[in-house]
Nucleic acid binder design. Structure first.
Length: 320
DNA sequence: AAAGGACCCAACCGCGTGACA
DNA sequence: GTGTCACGCGGTTGGGTCCTT
């Protein structure tokens, strides 16, 4: 299957957008929504391809775009998320309201990458670099990998929900971040977790995560998580066990919390899988997600306070 | 003040993939 | 099952701006 051109480029304008073009695009989208990007330029009276219009809108003209320099908190968050997700800018951007993937990509390539290098941190591995300039190689523990995969899948799902709810007619409400987690919880991923039974692992061999993600466009994730998710669920719940208070008080649930794979061996995880998975299944299912309300702040601070694979980047960044 | 290098960032390019006929 | 369309994503580019000499 050959790649099809995004549009017939004959007579189409390229290069910087003029204020007049911006005005045409904004006016049209405000009135009709973007609909099909391919047909939008013609309908809006623009001599641009749909792709160009989409990029201009998503990266610049969207009313919820947050302009101006990144704050220190945002930069820290980008570094932390990059340690988990790598160069998956869209997934990272989904965690920074008002910031675009392009903006974050530029921030990373122009500022953060260099800053980490200057501090002796490998920007790809987020580990201290050996004197020769290469990162000190330490094999990621299964726990680390599993949590990273879970975090990736979670962020992907969240990004998708975010996109779905980002129809123009909605006035871009400023929702508390916890609402996003509530949406996740109510989404297919959360649904799968709520319905998941331990025996499913044995009989089906597929995790709730992979079940949930298999129906999404992010199926490529499910292929990965399917192999590992029993461990993932174990590690997820194991850590949760350390922070979950059953008396109805607040509890922490955050993957970054468990990024230190050295804290538990894989055999420990195997042994505790039944108990911990049960704990996971015992999670509140009545939409009481108050325990996640401090999640965002947790993102911004937790990895820096703990010994995690992120701690090298965070520590160096904090002291920069 | 001028020249040239460094930096920044908006925009483009090409690929991967889901949806659909 | 296959081909096409449409879209989103990550990588790259190039022109404008800033900084240094």
């Amino acid at each position: 299957m050959g790649r099809t051109p995004c549009c017939d480029k004959k007579g189409l304008k390229k290069g910087p957008w003029t204020p007049e073009e911006d005005e045409l695009l904004v006016t049209y989208i405000k009135k009709h929504g973007h609909g099909s990007w391919r047909s939008l330029p013609k309908l809006a009276g623009l001599l641009r391809c749909g792709k160009s219009c989409r990029l201009r809108w998503t990266n610049y003209l969207r009313p919820d775009i947050k302009r101006g320099p990144f704050t220190l908190e945002e930069e820290k968050l980008v570094i932390q998320l990059h340690a988990i997700l790598g160069n998956r800018w869209a997934a990272i951007a989904s965690q920074l309201p008002g910031r675009t993937d392009n903006e974050i990509k530029n921030l990373w390539n122009t500022h953060l990458k260099k800053r980490l290098l200057c501090m002796g941190i490998d920007p790809q591995t987020h580990k201290p670099m050996a004197p020769c300039g290469t990162a000190i190689k330490a094999p990621a523990s299964p726990t680390t990998r599993h949590m990273a995969q879970w975090e990736s899948a979670r962020l992907e799902a969240e990004a998708r929900l975010s996109r779905e709810s980002e129809l123009f007619h909605t006035p871009f409400p400023k929702k508390p971040e916890s609402d996003q987690f509530l949406r996740i919880w109510n989404s297919e991923a959360g649904e799968a977790f709520r319905k998941f039974k331990p025996q499913d692992i044995k009989t089906v061999g597929q995790s709730p995560i992979s079940q949930a993600s298999s129906s999404t466009k992010y199926g490529s994730f499910s292929a990965t998580t399917a192999d590992t998710s029993p461990h993932l669920a174990g590690s997820f719940a194991t850590e949760n066990n350390q922070n979950y208070e059953t008396e109805g008080r607040s509890c922490r649930l955050h993957p970054l919390h468990v990024m230190d794979g050295s804290s538990s061996s894989s055999s420990d995880l195997e042994d505790s899988t039944d108990n911990t998975l049960q704990l996971l299944l015992d999670f509140p299912v009545n939409n009481d997600m108050s325990f996640l309300e401090d999640n965002v702040e947790y993102y911004a601070t937790s990895a820096c306070q703990q010994q995690s694979p992120l701690s090298a980047s965070c520590e160096a960044f904090r002291n920069f």
